[in-house]
């Protein structure tokens, strides 16, 4: 890894320089929450944000997008793959790890061209964070991003220690070398101390040892009914989840009845149609099956990574106040 230092007094200039690499998005306060929005100056950024409501997956797996336009009469269709370069500034480790996980699904096997293109066109800049009472990424092993970003800014006393993980990141650093200093011994100590301290700040913990088996052995337990009674089945938990990536596809025809488009949009396994096949058979007919499926999916592993990065969004934004960690603690038998 290459480490450099971005002194605090150069932060604004560095941030301004990012506009050379594409449209810059960063965490911005919206109402009482936060979201990644296009930012034109440092003052708009809220770098102390706990989490955004909608995770940065939205840049890659789009909430709604057109896949292609078609013309039935001419028997042709036109792909609508966009090609815009973007910079996502200020991503937290949990979200970086979540993107890594989605990469495994969308790039490593049968690559999704739309996703892949957008990933290639994005410069990812991480920033260090502090946990609030909903964060449990330490438990899921995703509190630190070892890779999956181009640059990562760790706040230290008088600026940032920057980890440079990719060629792309290196290019940014090289082109801004007038803003960059070498890392000194004091900076390294600062970094270590901050990281040590950060780990002691977590208030919420989830023991994931043996969780997969415990989930499976709770298949028929009343717990799912209990929470299904509370659950709205509104899909919020999925839609705000940085690792959920289900999508639905719809065709739209224009009034000429010949042309139209195929679109896809985020879907949620908590919604009725998710497991419904033509003919009316639903493989997850009630919220009991849907909730159980969701927790099993989140608790399962993709290669060695759990499908949950401990960001806390599903708990924060659940209108029924279903607490993810609490559910799993019940599954584990830690609480009644």
């Amino acid at each position: 890894m290459i480490y450099v230092k971005l002194p605090r007094e150069n932060f604004t200039a560095f941030f301004e320089s990012l506009k050379n690499y594409g449209k810059v998005y960063g965490p911005v306060k919206i109402s009482e929450s936060y979201g990644f929005k296009e930012v034109s100056n440092v003052a708009q950024l809220s770098l102390e944000y706990p989490r955004t409501m909608i995770p940065p997956k939205k840049f890659f797996v789009k909430p709604k997008e057109r896949i292609f336009e078609f013309d039935e009469e001419k028997m042709e269709y036109r792909e609508t793959v966009e090609n815009t370069e973007i910079v996502i500034f200020g991503i937290h480790p949990c979200d970086i790890n979540a993107i890594k996980l989605i990469d495994r699904v969308y790039i490593n096997e049968m690559p999704d061209k739309y996703y892949q293109k957008r990933r290639e066109n994005a410069l990812l800049i991480g920033v260090s964070c502090h946990p609030d009472e909903y964060c449990f990424c330490k438990s899921t092993g995703t509190s630190y991003a070892t890779d999956g970003f181009d640059l990562f800014l760790h706040e230290i006393n008088d600026g940032y220690l920057v980890r440079v993980a990719t060629e792309k990141g290196h290019k940014v650093i090289t082109q801004n070398k007038h803003l960059i200093r070498e890392v000194e011994a004091r900076d390294m100590e600062d970094f270590k101390e901050n990281e040590r301290k950060r780990l002691t700040e977590f208030k919420l913990e989830l023991n994931i040892s043996g969780l997969q088996d415990m989930l499976e052995l709770s298949h028929d337990r009343a717990i799912w009914r209990e929470y299904a009674d509370k659950c709205f089945g509104c899909g919020t938990c999925n839609l705000v989840c940085p690792t959920c990536r289900c999508y639905d596809v719809v065709d739209c025809v224009n009034l000429d009845l010949k042309t139209g488009e195929r679109k896809r949009k985020w879907d949620s396994c908590m919604l009725r149609k998710h497991g419904l096949v033509a003919g009316g058979l639903n493989f997850r007919p009630t919220r009991v099956e849907r909730l159980r499926n969701r927790f099993n999916c989140k608790g399962s592993l993709r290669e060695d990574m759990m499908n949950c990065v401990g960001c806390g969004r599903c708990t924060v934004y659940c209108p029924a106040d279903i607490r993810y960690v609490e559910v799993l603690q019940k599954v584990r038998g830690e609480i009644k």
Partner: peptide, 9 residues
């Protein structure tokens, strides 16, 4: 990718 045919534990 789209997730609808998921099953299991």
């Amino acid at each position: 990718k789209c997730g609808h045919c998921i099953l299991g534990n």
